[in-house]
Amino acid sequence: MGTTNPNSEFTTAADLVPQSWKHRHLLGLENLSQEDITTLLGTAITLKSATNGCHNKLDILAGLTIANMFFEDSTRTRNSFSLAARRLGAETVEFSASSSSVSKGETLIDTAKTIEAMNVDAIVIRHSTPGSPHLLSNNVDCSILNAGDGPHEHPTQGMLDIMTIYEQRGSIEGLTVAMVGDITYSRTARSNIWGLKKLGAHVIVCGPSTLVSQAWEQYGVEVSHNLDDIIPRCDVLNLLRIQFERQYTRPFPSVREYAFLYGMNKERMAHAKEGILILAPGPINRGVEVTPEVADGPHSVILNQVTNGIAVRMAALTLTTTANQRQSPNGGNI
């Protein structure tokens, strides 16, 4: 795979960002090219190493301000973006929907324009409605980073999952990766599907027929409703949380039955390949999609994912804000 070699020879953000990267915004992985995804992955790896595993500070985004605009609850993604921004020397502004002018009737676009007018360079948005980051990207000049738009996409989550697999395996191409569980309402599943497929993985979506549409086959994705059938073939299992909060009707009879059919447990692990990786985007529901002995077992890379989240978000902020400066009328010198 043609991943950019980790390059520690850089002093500014611009040194890190190839001219081929054109995206002012990061809205999803579906519309990125293989080269873009490789650039994002390579930049994340470089920044992880340059910050000594996301620990040290690196002031390549000093002077920038990043706003977190979260209209849905979040702890890991919000904090991960904040830490990523601060590690790179940027300032952060926190904005939450419940304590803001949105509760006074202000529109999403007006709220974003107001934040932008405070000289913000990037807005990180999480919203329950697909397309909301896209709406903003057409109406503001700063960079927009999608931190999850309803069930649509969550590109940094997809990338951090891919980075975690890449670190363990050295390549994505040829791997069989199964996304297990609630595909219908999962933005993590969608971002993973697009990213993994562009890097040459075979992707399986597996879960109840009410939550896994047969139509995924049209996009070159294998569809399964039987976890036991696919386990022996998988190099990676990504265990998704049931998104109860998005479901208008209950798609399966009980959590107990779901765990019986799709819960990853010790017995099922016995049929897996020796080097199988267990991922979970979290928050995990122990005893539902995964049992504690699997979540905390030797195959689990769940905590690596969290660390890599900061690396991917550092890369995403660096790439998008640099592209935006290059494209802005007075920023052509970068």
Partner: peptide, 18 residues
């Protein structure tokens, strides 16, 4: 069709829209 935004099909599936 409740809470629906668009035609139910492969496109709504990809976009995550009801």
């Amino acid at each position: 069709s409740q809470s629906g935004i668009m035609h139910a099909g492969a496109t709504s599936m990809v976009l995550g829209l009801s």
